[in-house]
């Protein structure tokens, strides 16, 4: 397994005069406000499949929680904002793992609802996770579906963006990426067992691809 993180290469970025860090897990850290953005983690997906008779390896469940913990340890954020699709489907026993994670982390959690988030808002509020349909912090708009509004910079998820790179000798590589336009950034899906969707590079977008433990500007 090549998943042990030895050297992490992060990428620093200035957006609207604020400093942001892109992390190879797909998370984005807003330094000034100490907020960590995480999108499309799809917790409970493995358990959901298993419940319906499809034997996806259980270890993936723990790997996703470990990735979450490691990323929180790395940044030690005051707040985590999930940009939707936090849980893949209806309630299952992975919820207990999530609740444990929330309790032990000593951080505040916010969820911007996504299309997969069908677990009731009460459930989240009971364990101290605040729920919003969209969220605004000074010049920044946080949503699940990409949404462009005047005078705001939008952070969103949903798409699971990836880029296909082509090389000489008919080579090609598909890598998950951060997809940034003038007033918008779409985050890649966080964690294991989430697919991705290839987007095109144009002159108006900046792409930051994730390769192994590195974030590389394309």
């Amino acid at each position: 397994m090549s998943l042990t993180i030895f050297t992490i290469m992060i990428h620093n970025l200035i957006i609207e005069n604020d400093s942001f860090i892109l992390h190879p897990t797909g998370a984005v850290f807003w330094e000034k406000e100490s907020k960590l953005l995480i999108s499309d983690i799809h917790l409970g997906k493995v358990s959901h499949f298993r419940k319906f008779g499809m034997a996806i390896p259980r270890k993936v469940i723990y790997k996703n929680f470990k990735l979450l913990r490691d990323t929180l340890d790395y940044f030690k954020p005051k707040q985590v904002i999930f940009l939707g699709d936090l849980f893949h489907s209806s309630l299952n026993l992975e919820w207990a793992l999530f609740e444990g994670f929330v309790n032990e982390s000593g951080t505040s959690f916010v969820l911007v609802m996504g299309n997969h988030d069908i677990i009731s808002r009460d459930k989240y509020q009971k364990i101290g996770v605040q729920i919003f349909d969209k969220l605004i912090f000074d010049k920044f708009l946080f949503t699940h579906y990409p949404q462009e509004e005047d005078n705001y910079f939008n952070f969103a998820g949903h798409i699971h963006p990836a880029i296909r790179l082509k090389g000489k000798g008919k080579q090609s590589l598909k890598l998950p990426c951060f997809f940034k336009k003038k007033n918008q950034m779409i985050l890649p899906a966080f964690g294991e067992f989430t697919g991705s969707h290839v987007l095109k590079k144009t002159s108006k977008v900046d792409l930051y691809a994730i390769a192994d433990e590195m974030v590389i500007k394309i």
């Binding site: 298993r50 008779g53 469940i61």
Partner: peptide, 8 residues
């Protein structure tokens, strides 16, 4: 395993 709802 604990926390497993596998069903078939």
């Amino acid at each position: 395993q604990a926390y497993d709802e596998y069903k078939k």
